[in-house]
Amino acid sequence: MCKALLKIICDRLISDNRFFSNLFRLLVTIEKSTFSNEDKFDTLALTLNLLINLVQNTKYVYKYLMEENMPDGNPLKIYEYLAKLFCEQESSAARAESLEENDWMMEDVDDDDFDEQSNTIPTNENGANFNRALQKAAGHMENTFVAAFAGVILSVILLRDRSTYVSQIQDLMPQKKFDTMAFILKKFFVFMHMSHAFTPSGVKILEEIISMILSLCG
C-alpha cells in the first residue's frame, strides 16, 4: 500500500516539467551556497534522496536524467552533472581521509599538562586538536554520503538500462572505471547497515546495485 502510494506521489511530481527544473536548480544553488557544511549536507541529502525515490519508483525518469540538460542554459546533461557531483564529493572525501591520520596524532603531553584530579584530561590545545579531527572526520563522511547518493542514482539508471547507458556513465567515472563507485557504495552500505538505517527493501536494492557495479569493474 505504501509503495503504491509512493508511486502515485512520484508520478504526480514528475508530471510537471517545472518540477525537475526546480529540483536541479535547487541542487546547484545548495552547492554554491554559503550554508554551513552541516546544513549543506542536510539539504543535499534530502534533495538527492527525493531523486533516488523518483528514479526507483517511476518508469521513465531515468531516461529524463540521461537525455535532458540541466536548467538555465547549462550545457551539461543531468547525468553528467550527477557524475561530476559524485567525482567531486569522492575526491573531497579521499583528500580529507588522507589527512585524517595526521590530525588524530596528538603531541606528547607532559605530566604537568594533565589535571591533578585526572590523568586522562588533555590540555586545551590538544583538546582543540581532537575537536578539529572530529570535525574533519565528519566532513569526510558527509562527502562520502553525498557521493554515494549520486552513485545510487546513476546505478539505478544502469539497473533500468545498462546496455544503453553503461559506456556514457563509465566515461565520466574516475579513471573511466567503476571501481571507485563500487568502493564508495560498499562503504556506504556497511555504515548504513551497522547503524540499522536501512529497511529490508533498502538493503535489497543496495545489494543489487553493488553486485551490478562490481560486475562492471575490472
Results as ranks from 00 to 15, higher is better:
Leu5Ser: 07
Leu6His: 06
Leu6Asn: 03
Cys10Lys: 01
Leu13Trp: 15
Phe20Leu: 15
Phe20Ser: 07
Thr29Lys: 15
Lys32Val: 02
Lys32Ile: 00
Thr34Met: 08
Asp39Phe: 02
Phe41Ala: 06
Thr43Lys: 11
Leu44Phe: 15
Leu44Trp: 03
Leu48Gln: 04
Leu54Pro: 11
Thr58Asp: 04
Tyr60Asn: 15
Glu68Gly: 03
Asn69Cys: 15
Asn74Tyr: 08
Tyr79Lys: 02
Glu90Ile: 00
Ala96Gly: 14
Glu97Asn: 02
Leu99Lys: 11
Asn102Trp: 10
Asn102Arg: 15
Asn102Thr: 14
Phe114Leu: 05
Gln117Pro: 00
Ile121Lys: 03
Asn131Glu: 14
Asn131Thr: 09
Leu134Lys: 08
Leu134Glu: 15
Gln135Asn: 11
Ala137Glu: 10
Phe145Arg: 12
Ala147Thr: 11
Ala147Met: 11
Ala147Val: 11
Phe149Leu: 09
Val152Phe: 03
Leu158Glu: 04
Arg160Leu: 12
Asp161Cys: 02
Arg162Glu: 13
Arg162Met: 13
Thr164Tyr: 13
Tyr165Ile: 06
Val166Ser: 06
Val166Gly: 00
Ser167Asp: 13
Ile169Val: 12
Asp171His: 07
Phe183Ser: 06
Leu185Cys: 02
Phe189His: 01
Phe191Asp: 14
Met192Val: 02
Met192Leu: 04
His196Tyr: 14
Ala197Leu: 07
Ile210Phe: 05
Ile210Lys: 06
Ser211Asp: 09
Met212Cys: 07
Ile213Thr: 12
